[in-house]
Design a binder for these strands. Structure first.
Length: 278
DNA sequence: GGACAGGAAGTCC
DNA sequence: GGACTTCCTGTC
């Protein structure tokens, strides 16, 4: 495990950084609001707090106005990823795990995860990031941090009051109906906290009640928003990897209770194209 | 350069 | 199985 120390009022340091690789964690497709600047520093917004994250001398630094506990939770720092034993072993998976070492599953805000992964359907990551950013700029709250303006992810209450046509500026296409519908459901008693208390299967079933949420999106929300680590989203990349590098009729449940972490290693590895290079 | 096809962390009917 | 919005990416 890694040591977490408070450097000063608004900065915490994690060392060694081996268990949290910000580049892999932010670029593996699980989140859409962290952006790297030309100096290699990431900025993002979590629960209404902006933050900067960077690596220096084998140490990860996080600077924000939010308390240390928020980051311990968000980065899932209580969990020792290197100590996790997956019941399934295979050459492709072992390579994926080595390649993805340092990825952590972020404990994202539930509504944000739901909304973001509704947007993700049939879309590529750069475009998803663009739509999410426009959603925040148009409907979130402005936050000033170190002289820059950031925007929070808009509340479901805010989105619920809109008509799908009001979302035209974010250019989410046909997903606008789903976004507004999900926001209204959440405001009318569709309880994401309750969903988080359910089993994996029950949570998926519950989420699929929402119009525009199918099995894939539901599993993303389960894993990235509800912190149910057995969530296993099967998208086109995972489908291809399973077909090409795993036994026929392979059951992802073979990865055990942390199947979602395995999924993320495989997704990141498959999408990198690394295994195809000479 | 710009045009064009294919496809993108899918879901619905 | 086709339709759905929009646009990123690779190819010519």
């Amino acid at each position: 495990m890694q040591a977490i120390e408070l450097v000063n009022n608004n900065t915490i340091a994690l060392s060694p950084h081996a268990q949290l690789d910000p580049v892999k964690t932010f670029e593996c497709g699980q989140c859409f609001r962290w952006n790297m600047d030309e100096d290699g520093i990431y900025t993002g917004v979590v629960l209404g707090s902006a933050a900067k994250v960077w690596v220096e001398d084998e140490t990860v630094y996080i600077r924000s106005n939010a308390p240390k506990s928020l980051w311990e939770d968000y980065f899932d720092l209580d969990r020792d990823y290197d100590a996790i034993e997956f019941p399934y072993a295979g050459e492709f998976f072992e390579s994926s795990r080595r390649f993805g070492q340092g990825i952590r599953i972020l404990r994202q805000e539930r509504w944000e995860a739901l909304c973001s992964f509704i947007i993700s359907q049939c879309n590529n990551i750069p475009r998803i990031k663009g739509i999410v950013e426009r959603l925040c700029q148009n409907f979130g709250e402005a936050i000033e941090f170190e002289g820059e303006i950031f925007y929070s992810f808009p509340n479901p209450e805010t989105i619920a009051l809109l008509e799908p046509s009001d979302l035209a500026p974010i250019r989410s296409g046909y997903r606008a109906d789903f976004i507004v519908g999900a926001a209204r459901a959440v405001c009318n008693g569709f309880d994401l906290d309750y969903a988080a208390s359910l089993s994996h299967e029950e949570a998926v079933k519950k989420l699929c009640e929402l119009h525009g949420v199918g099995k894939k999106v539901a599993n993303c929300v389960v894993l990235f928003g509800l912190n149910i680590m057995s969530g296993f989203p099967i998208d086109t990349w995972i489908k291809k990897a399973l077909k090409e590098h795993f036994p026929p009729d392979f059951d992802p449940a073979s990865f055990g209770e942390y199947a979602g972490i395995a999924q993320q290693y495989i997704f990141y590895y498959a999408r990198s194209g690394q295994h195809e290079e000479v």
